Computed example of a mutant assay.
Amino acid sequence: MEQAATLDIETLKITQEQFLLTSQSLHLQRPGCDAAYPVGLCGWRKRCIYFFLLLLLVTMIVNLALTVWIIKVMNFSVDGMGKLQLNQDGVNLEGVSEFQMPLYVNEIQSRRDSLLVLRSEKNVTLNARNSRGHLTGQLTVGPEAVEAQCRRLEVRSGNSGRLLFTADEEEVTMTTEKFTVTGSEGAVFGHSVETPLIRARTTEDLRLESPTRTLTMEAPRGVELSAAKGPLKISSRKDLQLDSTEGEILLDANSIQLGSLPLGIYTASTSQAPGDQSAYEVCVCPSGKIYLSPAESVSSCQAVSNICLWS
Results as ranks from 00 to 15, higher is better:
residue 118 L to W: 01
residue 115 L to G: 07
residue 123 N to I: 00
residue 103 L to E: 01
residue 104 Y to C: 03
residue 117 V to D: 10
residue 130 N to K: 02
residue 116 L to S: 05
residue 116 L to C: 08
residue 115 L to H: 10
residue 111 R to M: 05
residue 122 K to M: 11
residue 100 Q to W: 02
residue 100 Q to L: 08
residue 107 E to T: 15
residue 120 S to V: 01
residue 98 E to T: 14
residue 111 R to N: 12
residue 130 N to H: 07
residue 102 P to K: 00
residue 113 D to S: 11
residue 128 A to N: 11
residue 107 E to P: 13
residue 105 V to N: 04
residue 109 Q to Y: 08
residue 124 V to P: 00
residue 119 R to I: 05
residue 118 L to N: 04
residue 100 Q to E: 11
residue 121 E to P: 04
residue 112 R to K: 13
residue 101 M to L: 09
residue 125 T to W: 01
residue 123 N to K: 11
residue 116 L to Q: 05
residue 113 D to H: 09
residue 114 S to M: 07
residue 98 E to S: 14
residue 123 N to P: 00
residue 104 Y to N: 08
residue 114 S to G: 09
residue 124 V to W: 01
residue 111 R to V: 06
residue 127 N to Q: 15
residue 124 V to L: 01
residue 98 E to Y: 15
residue 114 S to E: 07
residue 107 E to L: 15
residue 127 N to K: 12
residue 105 V to L: 09
residue 112 R to M: 10
residue 124 V to R: 00
residue 107 E to R: 15
residue 96 V to R: 15
residue 102 P to Y: 00
residue 96 V to H: 14
residue 123 N to L: 07
residue 96 V to Y: 13
residue 111 R to F: 02
residue 119 R to G: 04
residue 96 V to G: 10
residue 104 Y to K: 06
residue 118 L to M: 08
residue 114 S to I: 05
residue 113 D to R: 07
residue 109 Q to H: 07
residue 129 R to A: 03
residue 128 A to M: 12
residue 117 V to A: 11
residue 109 Q to M: 06
residue 119 R to H: 08
residue 121 E to D: 11
residue 121 E to S: 11
residue 124 V to T: 03
residue 120 S to H: 01
residue 121 E to V: 06
residue 121 E to M: 10
residue 102 P to W: 00
residue 111 R to E: 09
residue 110 S to M: 06
residue 106 N to A: 13
residue 115 L to Q: 10
residue 126 L to D: 02
residue 123 N to Y: 09
residue 124 V to K: 00
residue 112 R to Y: 08
residue 106 N to W: 02
residue 104 Y to W: 04
residue 129 R to L: 05
residue 100 Q to R: 07
residue 127 N to Y: 14
residue 108 I to L: 15
residue 98 E to A: 14
residue 125 T to P: 00
residue 99 F to I: 03
residue 104 Y to F: 08
residue 100 Q to T: 07
residue 121 E to Q: 11
residue 112 R to E: 12
residue 127 N to E: 15
residue 109 Q to P: 02
residue 98 E to K: 14
residue 98 E to N: 13
residue 96 V to M: 13
residue 125 T to M: 07
residue 120 S to D: 03
residue 120 S to P: 04
residue 115 L to E: 08
residue 116 L to H: 04
residue 111 R to I: 01
residue 120 S to W: 01
residue 109 Q to A: 08
residue 109 Q to R: 08
residue 111 R to P: 06
residue 111 R to Y: 03
residue 99 F to H: 08
residue 96 V to L: 14
residue 104 Y to T: 09
residue 130 N to D: 15
residue 119 R to N: 09
residue 121 E to T: 09
residue 127 N to I: 11
residue 102 P to H: 00
residue 126 L to K: 01
residue 101 M to K: 10
residue 120 S to C: 05
residue 97 S to D: 02
residue 113 D to F: 03
residue 100 Q to F: 05
residue 125 T to N: 04
residue 113 D to V: 06
residue 105 V to S: 03
